[in-house]
Amino acid sequence: MNHSYSNLEIGQFVLITQGRDAGQYAVIIKILDERFVVLADGDKRKFDRPKKKNIHHLEFFDYVSPEVQNSMKETGRVTNSKMRFALTNFVNELVTDLKKGEHN
């Protein structure tokens, strides 16, 4: 999946495809440049200890968490619980949608 730098957004959900965190979901909390973003999930990767990742090692979803995005715009940070909440809701909806698609 090719993504250009301009398509990335703060609060966007991603699936990590490479590295020790492969298979985990995270939220973009900062865009460093056209190659790197900073990710956190509020659990293993907290806001204060985020992970810098190459965008080529990520799968992007066309969904942005309004809670995370608004919090980052207003205060420059987001609480770990807010990230966990947004990610849990997103993953639950995604898994539910994928299962619905399999049964059609």
Results as ranks from 00 to 15, higher is better:
Asn2His: 08
Ser4Gln: 02
Ser4Leu: 13
Ser4Phe: 07
Tyr5His: 12
Tyr5Gln: 11
Ser6Cys: 08
Ser6Leu: 15
Asn7Gly: 12
Glu9Ala: 14
Glu9Leu: 14
Ile10Tyr: 04
Ile10Ser: 08
Gly11Thr: 03
Gly11His: 13
Gln12Met: 11
Phe13Thr: 09
Leu15Phe: 03
Ile16Pro: 02
Ile16Phe: 12
Thr17Gln: 13
Gln18Phe: 14
Gly19Lys: 03
Arg20Asn: 14
Arg20Ala: 15
Arg20Gln: 13
Asp21Ala: 14
Ala22Asp: 09
Gly23Gln: 06
Gly23Glu: 10
Gly23Lys: 06
Tyr25Leu: 00
Ile28Cys: 04
Ile28His: 09
Ile29Arg: 04
Ile29Thr: 09
Lys30Ile: 01
Lys30Pro: 01
Glu34Leu: 07
Glu34Cys: 01
Glu34His: 13
Phe36Gly: 03
Val37Tyr: 10
Val38Cys: 15
Val38Ser: 15
Leu39Tyr: 11
Asp41Lys: 02
Asp41His: 06
Gly42Ser: 03
Asp43Ser: 12
Asp43Ala: 14
Lys44Cys: 06
Arg45Phe: 03
Phe47Asn: 07
Phe47Pro: 11
Asp48Pro: 05
Asp48Arg: 15
Arg49Pro: 07
Arg49Cys: 12
Lys51Phe: 04
Lys51Asp: 12
Lys51Glu: 10
Lys52His: 06
Lys52Gly: 05
Lys53Pro: 01
Lys53Val: 03
Lys53Glu: 08
Lys53Tyr: 03
Asn54Arg: 09
Asn54Gln: 00
Ile55Trp: 04
His56Asn: 02
His56Glu: 14
His57Asp: 08
His57Thr: 05
Glu59Val: 00
Glu59Asn: 06
Phe60Tyr: 05
Phe60Glu: 00
Phe61Ala: 07
Asp62Lys: 15
Tyr63Asp: 06
Val64Met: 07
Val64His: 01
Val64Ile: 06
Ser65Trp: 05
Ser65Leu: 04
Pro66Leu: 08
Glu67Gln: 01
Asn70Ile: 00
Asn70Trp: 06
Ser71Phe: 09
Ser71Ile: 00
Met72Gly: 08
Lys73Cys: 08
Glu74His: 12
Thr75Val: 09
Thr75His: 12
Gly76Met: 09
Gly76Tyr: 13
Arg77Trp: 04
Arg77Val: 08
Val78Glu: 00
Asn80Thr: 05
Ser81Leu: 14
Ser81Arg: 13
Lys82Glu: 06
Lys82Ala: 14
Lys82Ser: 11
Met83Gln: 08
Arg84Ile: 02
Ala86Arg: 00
Ala86Glu: 11
Ala86Gln: 03
Leu87Met: 04
Leu87Cys: 03
Leu87Asn: 09
Leu87Arg: 12
Leu87Ala: 07
Thr88Asn: 04
Thr88Ala: 11
Asn89Ala: 02
Val91Pro: 04
Val91Asp: 12
Val91Met: 06
Asn92Cys: 13
Asn92Ser: 15
Glu93Thr: 05
Leu94Gln: 15
Leu94Phe: 12
Leu94Cys: 08
Val95Phe: 05
Thr96Gly: 05
Thr96Pro: 00
Thr96Ser: 11
Asp97Asn: 09
Leu98Asp: 12
Lys99Val: 10
Lys99Ala: 04
Lys100Tyr: 10
Gly101Leu: 09
Gly101Glu: 10
Gly101Trp: 01
Gly101Val: 07
Glu102Arg: 14
Glu102Met: 10
Glu102Val: 08
Glu102Trp: 02
His103Gly: 08
Asn104Met: 04
Asn104Ala: 10
